[in-house]
Amino acid sequence: MPRPVRGARGAARTSFGRLLPAVPVVLAVLAALTAGCQAEDRDEDEGRSPFTGRPAEGGARVLAVKVDNAPQARPHTGLGEADLVYVEQVEAGLSRLVAVYADRLPDRVGPVRSARESDFELLAQFDEPALAYSGVQSRLRDEVADARLIPVSPDTAPDAYLRDPERAAPHNLYARPAAVLDAAPEAGEAGDIGFAFGEPPGEGGTRVDRHRVDYPNATFDFTWSEAADGTPGWQVAMDGTPVPGVAPATVVVQEVTVRDSEYGDSLGNVTPYTETVGSGDAVVLRDGQAFEAEWERRGERSGTEFTTPDGDPLRFATGQVWVVYAAA
């Protein structure tokens, strides 16, 4: 899908010479209007989370947790309190989650599993968040050290984790979010990652009751409910099993490049690498509707912006956001 040309110059240049006397006045008016709009935007955003659009005090530090999503890891703990949940493909066509917290910290989150190379690019936009994870393979340790995040594993902060004796290893490791952040006092604060919140586009949406995303060996269903746990949202089901206590207000199905990395698991499965810098198409689910969208992330330090096909910001509904990375 071709992207719209923004800020095009040179239109009607043949008339420009005759308009020169009015240019200073026009520029002054435009500057005043722009300043007014920016001030209104700042007023609207002030006191709200850049991740959910909910009222927030600001200054909250960011914690990302790498969450196991094998069938044996379910049901999860702490997903309902996450501001953001990213879904990514891992070995053998399975999936794993990255849950991001700032506004609300549950007592524990998990089960926690190992990080992947893709996570370092994804999390760079959060400006050095704390990362709770169970470890990485030896060849990735240098990349963890160089990544723009603060790694906190059971090896470096054992008191920030616990094992559930009623569950089988390795699906029984849980993080204590407050303790993880105590072990990462320099973790970055929540800031702009490109999201916009507000009313949906006036047109272009399609009413949908359910949307499915298929991975080679995993499925995600999002079903619209007017009263999911008391709040309208998208009921989540993984591999056909509903996820209790989780109903994101917005679900983004983002088409990305998923390629082989240089790494793999002990069974010989190649680890996929999900490219989150670039641009492409997306579907944004909100308010029981699906909207065609385009996404762009210019670099690792940049957030991801979502726009309508006409180039206008596509605003999310206030509340939890899920971003599902789907192979383009």
Rank of each mutant, 00 (worst) to 15 (best):
A130R: 15
F222H: 13
D119Y: 04
R210V: 07
P165F: 05
T318A: 10
L173V: 05
L122F: 08
G288Q: 12
H171D: 06
R9T: 14
G188F: 05
R148L: 06
A247Q: 09
L149C: 07
R104A: 01
P170D: 07
G7T: 10
F51Y: 13
G205S: 14
R108T: 12
T223C: 02
R96N: 06
A227C: 15
L181H: 11
D229Y: 13
A249T: 03
E255V: 05
S225Q: 11
E81Q: 15
I193Q: 09
E186W: 04
V112I: 11
Y101C: 01
G280P: 06
F291D: 07
A73T: 12
S279A: 12
D159K: 04
E166N: 12
H211Y: 15
T274A: 11
T241W: 03
G36H: 14
G110R: 09
V65K: 08
R167D: 13
V87I: 02
D127Y: 06
F120E: 06
E46M: 02
P21M: 12
R6K: 06
S138H: 13
V251D: 00
L122D: 04
D103I: 11
T156F: 03
G194A: 08
Q254M: 12
V112N: 01
E186N: 09
E262V: 03
A317T: 15
R167G: 15
D127C: 05
P71L: 07
P151N: 10
A124Q: 03
H171W: 09
T34F: 13
T304N: 08
G198C: 06
G202S: 04
R176S: 00
N172E: 06
G319A: 10
S114M: 10
P170W: 15
D146S: 10
V112Y: 01
Q72N: 08
P244A: 14
T219H: 03
R54N: 11
D142T: 14
M1W: 09
E57M: 07
S302A: 15
A328K: 15
R315D: 09
E166K: 05
A115P: 01
L162S: 05
T231A: 14
G268L: 15
R96I: 08
T206N: 01
V85Y: 07
A11S: 10
Q320V: 05
V243S: 13
A247M: 15
R286H: 13
T14P: 08
A22S: 12
D41L: 10
H211W: 09
E91K: 11
S134F: 05
A28K: 03
P106N: 13
D221C: 05
P232M: 06
L267Q: 15
E88D: 12
L181K: 07
V90R: 00
T231E: 14
R286K: 10
G299Y: 03
Q235L: 12
A132K: 02
V246F: 04
A32I: 06
S118K: 05
G78Y: 02
H171V: 03
T241P: 00
D127M: 05
G93K: 02
E91N: 04
D127H: 13
L173D: 00
P75H: 05
G135M: 08
P313W: 00
L97M: 12
R54P: 10
